[in-house]
């Protein structure tokens, strides 16, 4: 498939897929709690309902920033998702590499908290400061885990070339080297915090600070914020499945010829990753405090990602 066509197709597909993923996540979460749970399409219904509601801007907010930031956030996470998806779909790199995707995702989180804290609510101010501390905690190990790929077996940071490398080896990247397994572990450990789910949903903690920076958003703004968050979660899981666990590579060269099948397998794997890194932690764990989360991230994932860099430098 032509790269430009793939990119254009990915833009509408990625929010649809991510909302579907969110629906599945909510259903699984409910079933693990012995509940019936919402229908799988509930996120779509929520979205439609929210889009039809009136726009409320708090009197204390600085209006411009409050209004624009959800759009910026959604745009950047959508762009990240589309770049990734088009890379998998067309197997050619058009606009950006891994670093761009990671930064677009970070950008999306930051835009949301900036917009939220522009509302003037003290709870969103607390949410802002908490999110910043959390980003310091998880962004570093995550970035290092991704960068270690540049030292690794395929010295490239473009998703398409990493996929090509995996296909040429006939093995997913985790299985090819110890350093990559460690990097994958670090990356997976960072997903719950980046997706901000329990135990790391500290910035929005509903029983403590009532969704923090999202507190004043409602109606279409909240709809955008929700889309942005669910696209972010989807991109993270898809990224993990594409660069570390590209299961279609087991098919050999056929994976590159039959890209539709590869994408499907990739999505299945990312669904599994979502179950393990998002659904299960938020079901079986309690929320941590900022200090405890910071300690966790700077002990385990940071060590993992650093050792991954060191190991890949010595070609392990």
């Amino acid at each position: 498939m032509d790269a430009v066509v793939a990119f254009l197709i990915s833009i509408p597909i990625s929010p649809l897929l991510s909302l579907l993923f969110e629906g599945i996540d909510r259903k699984l979460h409910a079933r693990m709690q012995k509940r019936i749970g919402p229908p799988v399409l509930q996120p779509f219904y929520d979205l439609i309902k929210l889009l039809g509601k009136e726009r409320i801007i708090p009197a204390t907010a600085s209006t411009r920033i409050f209004e624009i930031m959800p759009m910026v956030s959604t745009a950047s996470s959508l762009l990240g998702a589309s770049i990734l998806l088009s890379n998998i779909l067309s197997n050619s790199n058009i606009v950006g590499d891994l670093i761009l995707i990671i930064y677009l995702l970070a950008m999306s989180s930051i835009a949301l908290i900036v917009g939220g804290s522009a509302s003037g609510n003290p709870y969103s101010a607390i949410g802002f400061s908490r999110k910043i501390s959390m980003m310091i905690a998880y962004e570093i190990p995550m970035l290092i885990a991704v960068i270690s790929m540049a030292f690794g077996p395929s010295p490239s940071l473009a998703v398409s070339s990493i996929i090509e490398f995996q296909v040429s080896r006939g093995l997913p990247l985790v299985a090819s080297r110890l350093s990559m397994a460690l990097a994958a572990a670090a990356f997976l450990l960072c997903i719950p915090a980046a997706a901000s789910v329990v135990p790391f949903d500290i910035p929005e903690a509903k029983t403590e600070i009532i969704y923090g920076f999202l507190i004043e958003y409602g109606g279409p703004y909240l709809a955008l914020a929700k889309v942005s968050k669910s696209v972010l979660n989807f991109t993270l899981t898809l990224l993990a499945s594409a660069i570390f666990l590209y299961i279609p590579s087991l098919l050999g060269e056929a994976a590159l010829l039959n890209l539709g099948l590869s994408l499907f397998l990739c999505l299945i794997v990312s669904l599994l990753i979502m179950f393990i890194t998002i659904t299960v932690p938020r079901t079986v764990l309690a929320r941590l405090k900022v200090g405890q989360a910071l300690k966790f991230y700077w002990v385990l994932p940071l060590t993992l990602s650093f050792s991954s860099i060191i190991l890949s430098a010595v070609n392990l």
Partner: peptide
């Protein structure tokens, strides 16, 4: 609670 939660995935919900 993981074991119990995982098991209830395959059981009828109580609600």
């Amino acid at each position: 609670v993981f074991r119990d939660a995982f098991r209830s995935l395959f059981r009828k919900p109580v609600t």
